[in-house]
Nucleic acid binder design. Sequence first.
RNA 1: GCCCGUGUGGCGGAAUGGUAGACGCAGUAGACUUAAAAUCUGCGAACCGCAAGGUUGUGGGGGUUCGAGUCCCUCCACGGGCACCA
Length: 841
Amino acid sequence: MYNFQESEEKWQRAWQEAHIFTPENGKAPCAYVLEMFPYPSGRIHMGHVRNYTIGDTFARFKKAQGYRVLHPMGWDAFGLPAENAALERNVHPRTWTYENIKAMRLQLERFGFSYDWTQNIATCHPGYYKHEQKLFLDFLKQGLVYRKKATVNWDPIEACVLANEQVIDGKGWRSGAVVERRELDQWFFKITDFADALLQGLETLSGWPEKVRTMQEHWIGRSYGVMFHLRVEGETEPLVLFSTHPETIFGASFIAIAPHHPLAEKLALQNAHLEDFIHSCNRISTATADLETMEKQGFSTGIDVHHPFIEGKTLPLYVANFVLMTYGTGAIFGAPAHDVRDFEFATKYALPIIPVVTGVDSESLPYTGEGIMINSAFLDGKTVQEARACIISEVERMGIGQATVFTRLRDWGVSRQRYWGCPIPIIHCPHCGAVPVPEKDLPVHLPEDVSFASPGNPLERHPTWKYATCPVCGAAAVRETDTLDTFVDSSWYFLRFCFPRLESAPFSPDAVRQWMPVGYYIGGVEHAILHLLYARFFSRALRVCGYDVPEEPFKALFTQGMVCHPAYKDKAGAWLFPEQVEKRGDIYCKRSDGTPVTVSRSEKMSKSKKNVVDTEAMVRTYGADAVRLFILSDTPLDRDLEWSEEGMEGCWRFVNRAWRLVEQYKSRQASLKLCDAHAEEALLRTLHQGIERLTAFYESFQFNRAIALIRELTSAFYAAIEAQNVAYTVLEEALKSWIVLIAPIIPHLAEELWHVVGEASFVTKATWPEADPAYLVEDTVEIAVQVNGKTRGIMTVSCEASQEDVSAMAQALPNVASTLKGKTIERTIFVPQKVVNFVCH
RNA sequence: GCCCGUGUGGCGGAAUGGUAGACGCAGUAGACUUAAAAUCUGCGAACCGCAAGGUUGUGGGGGUUCGAGUCCCUCCACGGGCACCA
């Protein structure tokens, strides 16, 4: 019986003691395999296990293939949960975080992942964030960081800023206080400067899933249109509009501006009703939800705006809640006949609806398709496309505007009014303004002695920390008390991970040149936009600062699906853990009292629904290898995986079966002397064809298919041992290849077996077997015989067989002959080694 | 609303336009055992048939092709992303 506990512990210790996972020097090609590093929440969940098993299997495969592999691990250690823990349990965020790191590292070590734990990084360590502060200052020097007032969600009770997600129905998630809009000075990264580059870069990322590229494309969101200005009655300043459909301008029946448009705010000074209206829009726009059901509302200002192309015509000016200040110019013209949103608004306020494209009756409004222009003066008779080009050149000729491209992407606000993050290295001087902390004074350390007893940012309230002198003029000044968004930490960690590292610089240029870009990046699809976009921005920004890093940090990306399980609820409606439930016959019952339980469909494991499986308990019961095997079996990695206890047990059985195979071989070795040349060749064929296909499956991350094939190989070996017709010398060599092939997935067992077959070194250092081409070509092949495309028989023929021979043989098959009887063959389709098809009537 | 993805046995899934259902789970029969567990071997889409074999079958409908799970059109269901984006 295989003692997995003993074996797994033994080999994990041996690997670490031998520093087997530290990248070696040498000339071999490099492979940088990286999994998205975890937030140290305290527990490893199945999602982590899936993520890291995928990466580890691939890293081990590449190592066996002779690559120098960099496969690092670390901790994305700053973040809000640490502060919440401080509030709830009166424990320091640092203590909480490092304790979690310790606990999670122990859990990860039990899986035997090929990390060099001596090279572990936590982003909350000053040795990490001091470099981040340096990068911030580099960005500042290059004008990639700026400060501006921005609107935030302010919780008046907690005295802090809330993320949009923390605002529920316009109230703070914790305090329940009505959230206010406040204008605060905040730091921004100029990601919009790179909108074009980030968009174009996507086209080069052939190793990324199409889906992720599309999501980023939409997130950046380009609109091609025209920006032009109009004269507003009674105003000296013109009003600037943006439109992607300028050709519908002759169908315009109103102008609408955003509630926070400067003109709206100016008008509100003299109009209390308008002020009220703007105020009512505020309340709603802070609450993120329910935009969909929100009713369109407008406030008629009574002011006229002059139509740009129709002399003497004016359009009424509205302030409307559906116009966003954050997109375009915050002002639009409404063409109700050809825009769903404008149509709804015009209907509500009884504004004219003027069709300007043919083929439209009142039923089909609003119409947004192609057609011929009407009611549009000089555009009449043109197609929509032609009209668009025409009106843009007309706008430019008249000097009232120009063709413009707008992006949806906003600059990245990185200020967080939080303690547990990287301090922003800035000193605010009453005379010199915002002054960078000199590099020699880095890092700006987070103070240890902070209190969470009262609301607000502890850095703000600290008795001494924020007081400093201005590095320029020496005057009394205060430190920036905001810290950086944690997404900044994860935007460059993969550069710091490059080995060997420097203490004196954020990353070593030599190491980066050697390892970057990350060859294989593996993680959850939930990071498809923010993290991956920010990291791509960082690379480009670093280049602007003179760092030699590749433009695209991740060459190939693999996004794994979620780990799912049904959720259970008892009669009282309380969630139950899977182990509290058992199946009796066809119904699910509570284990404790047998009462029936309702079962939901399988969904993402989450603590709140208790549909979680404890990773430690699984390792204890089945061993790391069996869990690794299960989590890679059956389901392709980009799909959601359904956890099943039965499947888990099946994998445990396979681990034991693999162990018994070698045991059985050893016990029968002495009697394996007779050799049947045919049987031997057949086994070697199976093996070498297996090597060929398996290598391709590993390479393309099709681990589910790799495992199916490994099982087939295993069965073939069992059959050979049972038949006793292959000499042990041949069999043993074949078994050794097989052990190397299974090692990336179940490394502990493989090490153990490697040892049993008499090898002294590590299988983890063994070389990947190569398929012998001699065994890959077959003499004969099975081909299908079809009549009118329907398969009527199968026969084995020589690979080189001619069409004539194959046809003759095929027609002689009894079943084929009877089907063909009385029919005339019109055509014979022959695809060598595949099929012969008789077309007849 | 827009964009993307998925749809194959009881279940997870496999299949360069060429034998649909590899491999696993659950099931079932047999071997071993006093018995059970474990293990090993076999069977297994549905319908008709004693069998040989036949018919149907990859969400629905249509098309291209000698041949379609695979390509094209269309509809439906589910999942995900974005969303008053001008």
